[in-house]
Design a binder for these strands. Structure first.
Lengths: 352, 352
DNA sequence: TCATTTAGTGTAAGCGCTTACATTTTTTAA
DNA sequence: TTAAAAAATGTAAGCGCTTACACTAAATGA
């Protein structure tokens, strides 16, 4: 007896056609444009499909139809919640439209990202979701050559060949900084994710600088520390930032994960947040509501972004519509981690 | 001038063959088994590939080779970190082996899961990763019929046709409960995820019951509340549990997310954790280390599980090896949320 | 020297589907 | 009633690749 596994032959379109006593074309039509087939034959065909447990062969379909109904997404990381929600929404819309999502992550590495993009294309992706705008222009060219619809998410671009569904990172960060300045903060430090090839991170720092400038402060005096995307590194970086003199009364963080680390470290150092030092986040992921004090942060409409991104792409692929540029609003969520600047601290830092 | 986007024709194998003045077979061999081609022609062919920016057509390849090099994964949710890490590791191994991952999520709904499984198969998945064992047996049959390698993760199964890479949920939970019992806890309540069609959740409750029984306590007396997988619902459920009489001295939670909600609610109710009430989690995701008190929880080797799952599947597909059953160890991570049972509390509850 | 192996390459038959076009059947209108 | 239009179905040509098999040329051994 043969024990080795062997793919038993799956039924093909032809088998179904034979069983239903119609041509393969009719079966194909039943599956793809049911209203071009009469009710009676449709019923017969569908029965055969069920009886034989037929399921179309993906490769053959892709080859003949010249499209795969597959949409690729390359995100920086799957390890935390930042992109999860948006991606979930993205996928939901695709599934609802009979398409499939293919994800790959780049670990924030441009080279890996390029590879993943090429892989997804080789895999037959009909369109692509990419995060942010920072990448070798050659890639965008490559994509344009292939005439692949691409949507940039989490950021905006004016590039006419690309769609985008994002928000203004500079402006959102600026608003938050402005609010902090109104609360009396003058010694502001920034705890950022690595800004190299990460426009979101970079723009958030820029936004803060802009606010400083508007209020007549020297933007270049704001200390910025860049660190890895993890609680642990955020703690270390926060420690370094706080030991500076003058001590900052506010540490703005490039995202909620860094902020969570900062809050933790502050408390372990015996600092009251926001009594002694304020901390802000960015993104408004669940984590922001879980830690104590809860984070004052920028709410980013992740779900909406994912949903719209899918809709834009679907539209470009199915209706050949042109690229669209959508900018979503963000807003500040005031929770507990940002308070008025402590008067003492400000004086303390003056004598310097 | 024509403004509408139109797919410009991509180069095919034949174009490359022509450019390199060889047959299509040779080009194909260059790409798939380079050592069967002489150095000189290989060089010529590769040059042509580069010049023409050739990239093989996925559909055609899948059709001709009868495999897609695509591995599907259906997970209950992408919304939180529980599966993210494992999936990331799963994908990594696949990518390292030139394969691609296709993910879909089921929202903990068996019907959606079934759909997603079928979609992934229709999409040509060579193998499947599934979470847990609870599903219509018809599906497993269906998969067996197709002779599709399947690995069950996050749980174990003895089903000979299926591979698994998981851990013993019952045993892990039992150990944790035993530890709590040793700390003097007698009034133990369980805050669980919905157990319907979720064997992991169910088994974690069972494990706790088992421990109770071993210590001569009535397992059926343990209150169990099931709730949705979210911080908010966990808070509500925890509130209900605590208002019971006798008040539990320990609330074991089916996972860290629920535990995080429980901790939060406890503190908002003015209860000290673990002074007044202990809380335990399960999974050991990052969240467990972020909240205060940090969670005592069961560490699950997510990364290892994902990695091994990929390896098992790759092995089954590429070397036609048989199903494997791997059980990984878990261990308890003692942090701060589980302490000795408060003596007072126990007395306090006696007068009832 | 010639038969035999071996390495390298070419030929061509599909893989299972979609779809343009041709054909047949039904409906509609005159 | 019959011609024309519309609806339903069939025919068959690919889609771009892999691979069994055939073939040629070079290497090997007797």
């Amino acid at each position: 007896m043969d024990v080795t596994a062997q793919k038993n032959e799956l039924p093909t379109l032809e088998d179904v056609a034979k069983a239903a006593r119609v041509s393969t074309a009719t079966v194909s039509r039943c599956l793809n444009s049911p209203d071009r087939v009469s009710e009676s034959t449709k019923k017969r065909v569908m029965e055969a499909v069920r009886d034989l447990k037929y399921s179309p062969n993906f490769g053959a379909r892709a080859l003949a139809a010249k499209k795969t109904n597959t949409y690729g997404a390359v995100i920086p990381t799957m390890d935390n919640a930042i992109f999860a929600r948006g991606l979930q929404a993205f996928q939901q819309v695709l599934v609802d439209n009979g398409a499939t999502m293919l994800v790959a992550s780049s670990a924030y590495d441009p080279e890996i990202e390029e590879n993943q993009i090429k892989t997804l294309i080789a895999r037959g992706a009909d369109a692509l979701l990419l995060i942010g705008t920072d990448r070798d222009p050659g890639i965008h060219e490559f994509l344009r050559d292939r005439n692949l619809p691409v949507v940039i998410a989490w950021a905006c671009t004016t590039e006419p060949a690309l769609s985008c569904v994002g928000f203004d990172n500079v402006e959102a960060s600026r608003q938050l900084a402005l609010k902090a300045l109104d609360l009396g903060h003058r010694e502001i430090a920034f705890l950022s994710a690595f800004t190299k090839s990460n426009d979101r991170a970079r723009n958030r720092v820029i936004g803060a600088r802009k606010a400083l400038e508007e209020r007549g402060l020297d933007p270049s005096s704001m200390p910025v520390v860049e660190t890895k995307y993890s609680i642990r590194s955020a703690r270390e970086a926060f420690g370094a930032l706080v030991r500076r003199s003058p001590r900052p009364t506010l540490v703005m963080c490039g995202n909620d994960v860094l902020a969570a680390g900062a809050v933790q470290e502050a408390r372990d150092m015996g600092l009251d947040v926001p009594g002694d030092i304020s901390i802000t986040g960015f993104d408004d992921i669940e984590l922001a509501t879980v830690i104590r004090p809860a984070l004052t942060t920028v709410h980013v409409p992740h779900r909406k972004m994912g949903r719209l991104a899918a809709e834009v792409l679907l539209d470009q692929v199915r209706h050949n519509s042109g690229p669209r540029h959508i900018t979503l609003d963000t807003h500040i969520v005031e929770r507990a981690s940002l308070g008025p600047a402590p008067a003492l601290c400000r004086t303390a830092s003056l004598p310097l």
